[in-house]
Design a protein around this nucleic acid. Structure first.
Lengths: 204, 204
DNA sequence: GTCTATAGCGGGATAGAC
DNA sequence: GTCTATCCCGCTATAGAC
């Protein structure tokens, strides 16, 4: 018995691949149609416009990124060091699997800041604040466990150290001549190394 | 007396602005012509193709980025901590002035890895290696001054902490609602903060 | 050197037959 | 729902008058 094909899902999968790889402008509806094994007219029949399709993919990507960190930061059962280790590990794994997402997000925000900015805020609204994390930092600082640092700076540093290497992977690849396997090993090592780097930096 | 106009220089300035802002594909020869206050035919008369113009801009941008770090890392009169402070300070200043360069480079490498990879290697070849920095790290580790870390990891961490915030500035801007002046102040603070963060992390 | 006009192509979107 | 054909636009590049 032939498995029933889900055309809509095929299209979404194809669009995710093509948009994340190429960005809005360089992605074409023709590429997406080919990738989904349908023709151009069908693609427009299911999703009326390129914009419609694009925003579905964008919202999904940004939501994934955001939920991952928000969920951990607002968990009041984890201490500050555990949070750092978990975020670093999960982000590095995530960017290994989805290497194009960070550039995809940044690129589209620059292309269309107002519209994309609005959409990001919609994804964020229902999520609890980072107050838990901020309080924890203040508390540990007062106890003399860590150096003074703002939650904003610490989060920015954590994200920088996780995201940038994934983002610049293609550049490092070209310049270093490392093989795929060597890069993989480095990336796996970095989970511990980066967490240690951050924790060494704040712990007194 | 009317100042003689240098059309070629006007074109290069216009191309730098348009290409760095929009990337190769989204930048148009029309935009560049408008920005340089000439018409489309003239633009093609001076620089035969979009590719020609683009590679001039790319080589210039990558060269600037690379020379800055190579020059400092290979200076054997600076100790390891001085190098970190200088690189962090210079990069953060540089990215404040040229906010689009990091994304510009990464984006084009992804678009066309082989060709762009070749061009990057050409810019790099004449420059001395990072051996000086690598030796210094090993030496300081053996003296018990710093923790063990590879030159590769340390450089990657330094660059991540300097570049990513510049790259993600538009995203942070949209999400945080901070004003331009507040962002400026944060960025200025980060010069010391990031250098301290790195040095605290490696110093025993 | 400078301009207008246009060739030639690839893109999003849709009409209309089946 | 599915397909072919086509509209119309914006892009790079160039021809050709001045």
């Amino acid at each position: 018995m032939q498995k029933t094909r889900n055309v809509e899902q095929d299209i979404i999968d194809a669009a995710r691949k093509v948009f994340q790889m190429n960005g809005f402008k360089e992605a074409t509806m023709r590429d997406i149609a080919n990738e989904a094994n349908i023709n151009l007219a069908m693609l427009h029949y299911y999703f009326r416009s390129k914009d419609n399709l694009f925003y579905m993919i964008f919202d999904e990507a940004f939501g994934l990124l955001y939920e991952k960190i928000a969920h951990i930061l607002s968990d009041d059962k984890l201490d500050i060091f555990e949070k750092i280790r978990i975020i670093v590990s999960e982000y590095i794994t995530f960017f290994n699997i989805n290497p194009h997402i960070p550039l995809f997000i940044v690129r589209e925000v620059i292309r269309n800041p107002e519209k994309i900015g609005e959409r990001m805020k919609v994804s964020i609204n229902p999520i609890p604040t980072f107050k838990t994390f901020s309080d924890q930092i203040q508390e540990q600082y007062e106890k003399g466990v860590i150096r003074q640092i703002s939650a904003f700076s610490l989060i920015l540093n954590i994200i920088s150290l996780c995201v940038f290497p994934a983002l610049a992977k293609s550049v490092v690849n070209q310049l270093s001549g490392l093989t795929e396997i060597e890069m993989e090993a480095i990336s796996e090592n970095r989970k511990k190394e980066v967490a240690d780097f951050i924790i060494n930096s704040i712990r007194i």
